[in-house]
Design a protein around this nucleic acid. Structure first.
Lengths: 242, 242
DNA sequence: ACCTGAACACCGTTCAAGT
DNA sequence: ACCTGAACACCGTTCAAGT
C-alpha cells in the first residue's frame, strides 16, 4: 500500500534562487542543480511523454552520471512532483480589478488552466495522482475567490470548486490523450459506422468525429456555469427572491 | 511518436465462449487462455495497482512461463486494454421502460459508471489513455440515448455527452487517486492552515477536508444537469416558449 | 558538499527451440 | 497449436568510494 507523500520538503532543501548565477547558466556544462534537473525533466517529458522520462536519460541530457541526480533529488517520484508543479506555475492576472463579469472571470481562469496543461500534455494525467503542490493550491484558491466574489454561497462553494475541477481535469486529460492521433478517431468512427446498429445514437451525432475541442470545452463549461448561476446569492442590488 | 492502436482484432482472434469448458475452470492448473489471463490481470491490478501489473508476476500467478502469455496476447499494452474493457462491461438496466424522470435516468447511468470504475480504482486513470473499447462505446451510447430521449436537442447532444463524460472522468480519477490515504488530505489541510494567509478562501471553506465524495459528486452533477435542462426541446405537452 | 561506477533486483520482448 | 528458457537491452536504486 504505497503512501503518497504530500510534498514533504525533503532532507536537503536548497533554494537556488536569491543567489547570483555564475553568468553561465544557458548551456555549457553548468553544474548540476535541482532547478536544472527539473527544467531538463520537463524538456524530456515534453519531447517523449511520461514513459520517456528515465533517470538514465535525464542524466545523459545533463551530462552527468545517473547517481549524481540523487544528490539533488529523492527519487524519480520526486522528479515527477517537481516537474509537475513547475509547469503549473501561475502568473496571476490583474488581481486588483473588481470585475463585473463573473462568468468571464471563471472562464478565463479555467481556460488558462487548461491551456497550461495542454502545453505539457503529460501534466494533466499526472496531476490527479500527485499531492497538491503549492501552484495547484493557488489555482484552486484563485478559483475559490473568483466564485466567492461572483456570489456563490459559502455552503455551495466546495461543491462548485470541485465540479469545475472535475470538468477541467476530465476535459483536459481526455483531450491530451486523444490528441496523439486523429487517424485513430477517424478509424474509431469508421468502426462505429460499421456497427451503427449497435451504437446508433452516437453514430448519428458523429460523436467521435467532432474535433472542435476548444468549442466543446467552452460550450460544456457554459452548461455548468448556467447550472451554477442559481447557487449565487442574489446580488445586493437585485430583488431578493429565495 | 507512439501510435495508439484502436483495438485491432489481433492476429489470432480466438473466442473461448461458445465452447463447453472442461468442467475445471475454477482453480487447478487449467490451461492458459486469453480470458484467464485477463481475469488474473484484473485481480493483480485490483490488488497492486497499475504499477503492480507485470508480465512476470502475471505469469507467476497463472503458473506458466512468462513467454507463454505472448501466445494469447500481443503485448502488455494489450493486457491493459483487455483488462480495462472487461471491467467496464455494462449489464443494461430495464431498457424497455419509458421513464418519465430524465434526470434520474442520467444520474443513474453516471453513478453506475462511476461506481464501476471505483470498484477497480486503476481503471479510471487508465481509461482516457486507451482507445475506446466496445463497452465504453456502449456506455456512451446509453448516455446519448438517455439524453436524447430526455429531449436534449441534436445540436447540443455531443456537447452534452462530452460535458458529462468530462465531469464523470474528472471526478472519478480524482477520487480514485486521493482515496489512497486520508492522512494525506488531513496533512494537506494542516499545511493549508499553516499557510492560511496564502490560501484564505479554500482554507476557510475547508476544501481539502470535505470527504463526502458521493455527496459532492451528486451535487456537482446536479449543477451540470441544471445547466443542461434548458438545452432540452420543450416537451410535446409543455407550453412552447423560446 | 558534491559526484561517481559497480552491482542488485528487477523490467518487456525477440528468438530459436521444444512438444 | 501451444509452451518454454536463454538472452538482450533496458529500468530505479543501494552502497561504498572518490574528490
Amino acid at each position: 500500500m504505497a503512501v503518497k507523500r504530500s510534498g514533504a520538503p525533503g532532507k536537503r532543501s536548497q533554494r537556488t534562487s536569491g543567489r547570483i548565477p555564475p553568468a553561465k547558466e544557458p548551456h555549457g556544462e553548468s553544474p548540476l542543480s535541482r532547478d536544472r534537473i527539473v527544467a531538463t525533466a520537463v524538456e524530456l517529458l515534453d519531447a517523449q511523454g511520461l514513459d520517456g522520462l528515465t533517470m538514465r536519460r535525464l542524466a545523459d541530457r545533463l551530462g552527468s552520471g545517473v547517481m549524481s541526480l540523487y544528490w539533488h533529488v529523492d527519487s524519480k517520484e520526486d522528479v515527477f512532483d517537481l516537474a509537475l508543479d513547475s509547469v503549473l506555475e501561475y502568473r496571476g492576472p490583474p488581481q486588483g480589478v473588481e470585475s463585473q463579469d463573473w462568468r468571464g472571470d471563471v472562464v478565463h481562469v479555467l481556460e488558462d488552466w487548461r491551456a497550461g496543461m495542454l502545453r505539457h500534455p503529460w501534466s494533466a494525467s499526472l496531476l490527479p495522482r500527485r499531492a497538491l503542490g503549492p501552484n495547484i493550491l493557488s489555482r484552486l484558491e484563485l478559483l475559490g475567490t473568483t466564485l466567492s466574489r461572483a456570489g456563490v454561497a459559502d455552503s455551495d462553494l466546495n461543491a462548485a470548486i470541485w465540479s469545475l475541477w472535475n470538468y477541467v481535469m476530465g476535459a483536459t486529460i481526455t483531450r491530451a490523450s486523444f490528441d496523439v492521433s486523429d487517424d485513430d478517431r477517424a478509424a474509431g468512427q469508421q468502426r462505429l459506422t460499421r456497427l451503427s446498429e449497435r451504437y446508433p445514437t452516437i453514430e448519428r451525432s458523429r460523436l467521435l468525429l467532432d474535433d472542435d475541442w476548444d468549442g466543446a470545452f467552452r460550450k460544456g463549461l457554459g452548461f455548468l456555469l448556467d447550472g451554477l448561476a442559481p447557487a449565487r446569492r442574489p446580488a445586493p442590488d437585485a430583488t431578493a427572491r429565495a
